[in-house]
Nucleic acid binder design. Structure first.
Length: 565
RNA sequence: GCGGCUGUAGUCUAGCGGUUAGGACUGAAGCUUCCCAAGCUUUAAGCCCGGGUUCGAAUCCCGGCAGCCGCACCA
């Protein structure tokens, strides 16, 4: 299909268009119009239904701007940047770390200066023309903005919503009654200063993400509902293999997918995709190659859809290990751990420095308590065999003779252990999903275009038309539209042009059914209900119209709690 | 960021240095008992932006912006 045709429809009918058009446009930014906004919101609402309502994830709304330390910890400040050199001869730019491949174990980890020296020492020239190269220049893909006036602190627009959930692990864990696994989600905007945005909605500088972070005990990566779906089939493209259908349990059993939890969220992604209307025959899960994966991930699967642009990544489901939480724990000093009680409390015996208050009291009088406290913090190794130990309390240094303490073994009851949780992250790109949905729904018969959107996501659920805008038919139609609106069904009144033209307008924006009021309505109160995909019509009682429309919409949608594909 | 191609109403397009930029579809108003983009009347809407060449520029040249394709990039 021709993506230009689809984009033209999107603009014509009010789905979306390039932003700031009257000022010449702004690459990488798009506006959603009334239909696009409704479609986007329906997609997000369906996702929320699955993750928040069914699976019990906690939804958070975190700020779009975060202070610098967050991204120092996450690694975005260093790693979410590319180093470039430019050729002084031909002007071509090259990835500096790529040019240094083979000269260093990990060129990307070097500073600009170090990398520049490395390239210079090895006499690297422009691969295109052999010209001299500029020193490496760093281009960070995050948008930076000062926060506050004066000596403002640097802030960054978030490049993903994930960090907001990692830094809030303790709140999520506590709200979840201190049980694992526990999950948080966030739906919202993220920003990346792409060097070259392309392909419409597929590479934006400002875009929407739906991300979930599921926190696990490192050795128990499964999910309560896994057993229910373990025999379902997944279209998998394993690293180094070819596409094939495989059940979850086979994939986990054969080690194709690293664990049950990862398999479950891969399946949930397929369920979501299918329920909003992506074509099951044009999607697959592609496993990242070892060298493609972020260094901290242990397994990662991209959910891809086939489009006019080729296979496009819509969702990434990755096992990120303990990397993110660990990073914030170290960087912030906060205790971002989970606690697991042992079946039986254990007794741990360890050696400690125990102050002898009877001896100390005489020597240090009123300072005894403070000195003893400091003394207890020392390890047995530090005091063993010494005659005297220096202890600092405030500004004072006290010389404490060894008679004041002893090294004794103490028995402590340990109820359980603390650990840094592992994270599995399903991350969905809303704009890409929306675009692919439109492509997969696009049907063309001659010049006649129909968007075969699922009722669950269709921006308008029903068109309501008087056959003629006269003889009171229009009044009846307006009442019916209002009845539908009150019942929560997005309905669109149209009395302009021929009836065929009005059906065509609705077909082109993916409206699943239309209600038409004709002269028979005046006689027996029935209206016709017309189906978008079959073009079939049937008469229904006027009083039943809301229920009948709801049924028709549901027919082109999956059952609310349906687990099957 | 580099190279190639391209930019005319909401959409698709005619134009090739010289009248008032033409058409189709769409939109709006109206007529027509009108169930699948029907017909008729009326009507709105355009040369991406900025410089230059020229008596005269949608047209030629330069720059910018945007789009498409390829390269690069996509933690």
């Amino acid at each position: 299909m021709d993506s230009q045709e689809l984009l033209s429809l999107c603009r014509r009918r009010g789905f979306l268009w390039p932003a700031y058009d009257i000022y010449g446009g702004f690459a990488g930014f798009y506006d959603y119009g009334p239909l696009g906004a409704a479609l986007k919101s329906n997609i997000e609402e369906h996702w929320r239904r699955l993750y928040v309502h069914e699976e019990g994830f906690q939804e958070l709304v975190c700020p779009l701007i975060a202070p610098e330390p967050v991204f120092e910890a996450s690694g975005h400040l260093d790693a979410f940047a590319d180093m470039y050199v430019e050729c002084e001869g031909c002007g071509e730019t090259h990835r500096a770390d790529h040019l240094a491949a083979g000269m260093h174990d990990n060129p990307a980890s070097l500073s600009e200066e170090e990398l520049g020296k490395l390239l210079g020492d090895n006499g690297v020239k422009c691969p295109s023309c052999g010209g001299a190269l500029t020193p490496p220049r760093r281009f960070n893909l995050m948008f930076k903005t000062p926060v506050g006036a004066g000596s403002a602190k640097p802030g960054y627009l978030r490049p993903e919503t994930a960090q907001g959930m990692f830094v809030n692990f303790s709140q999520v864990y506590r709200y979840g009654r201190e049980k694992l696994p526990v999950g948080a989600v966030q739906i919202g905007r993220a920003f990346r200063n792409e060097i070259s945005p392309r392909q419409g909605l597929l590479r934006l500088r400002e875009f929407s993400l739906m991300e979930a972070e599921v926190f696990f005990h490192p050795e128990r990566k499964t999910w309560p509902r896994y057993d229910r779906v373990k025999d379902e089939k997944l279209p998998l493209l394993p690293d180094g293999g070819s596409v094939g259908e495989m059940s979850l349990s086979d994939a986990v059993g054969k080690g194709v997918i690293a664990n049950e939890a990862l398999a479950y969220f891969i399946w949930l992604t397929l369920r979501f995709a299918s329920e909003i209307g992506l074509d099951r025959r044009r999607v697959r899960f592609r496993q990242h190659a070892r060298d493609e994966m972020a260094h901290y991930a242990s397994d990662c699967w991209d959910f891809e859809a086939e489009t006019g642009y080729g296979w496009v990544e819509l969702v990434g489901v990755a096992d990120r290990g303990c990397y993110d939480v660990q990073a914030h724990l170290r960087h912030s000093g906060a205790d971002l751990t989970a606690f697991e009680p042992f079946d039986e409390p254990r007794e741990a015996t360890e050696e400690v420095v125990r102050p002898r208050f009877d001896v100390m009291g005489k020597l240090f009088k009123g300072r005894t308590k403070a000195i003893a406290e400091e003394l207890s913090k020392l390890s047995p190794e530090e005091v063993r065999g010494t005659e005297e130990v220096g202890v600092v309390v405030g500004d004072e240094v006290f010389k404490v003779p060894s008679s004041c303490f002893e090294v004794a073994s103490a028995t402590r009851k340990v109820a359980g252990e603390k650990f840094v949780p592992h994270v599995i992250e399903p991350a969905y790109g809303v704009d890409r999903i929306l675009y692919c949905l439109l492509e997969h729904a696009y049907r063309k018969d001659g010049d006649y275009v129909t968007l075969s959107l699922k009722g669950s996501v269709a921006p308008i659920k029903a068109g309501v038309f008087p056959l003629m805008a006269r003889d009171g038919l229009d009044g009846v139609a307006m009442e019916i539209r209002e009845t539908l609106a009150v019942a929560g069904i997005a309905a669109y009144f149209d009395d302009a042009g021929s009836i065929g033209r009005r059906y065509a307008r609705m077909d082109e924006v993916g409206t699943p059914c239309c209600v038409t009021i004709d002269y028979q309505t005046k006689e027996d109160g029935t209206v016709t209900l017309r189906d978008r995909d079959t073009k079939e019509q049937k008469r229904v009682e006027g009083e039943r119209v809301a229920a009948a429309v709801a049924e028709a919409v549901a027919r082109s949608s999956p059952a609310a709690s349906g687990g099957g594909m």
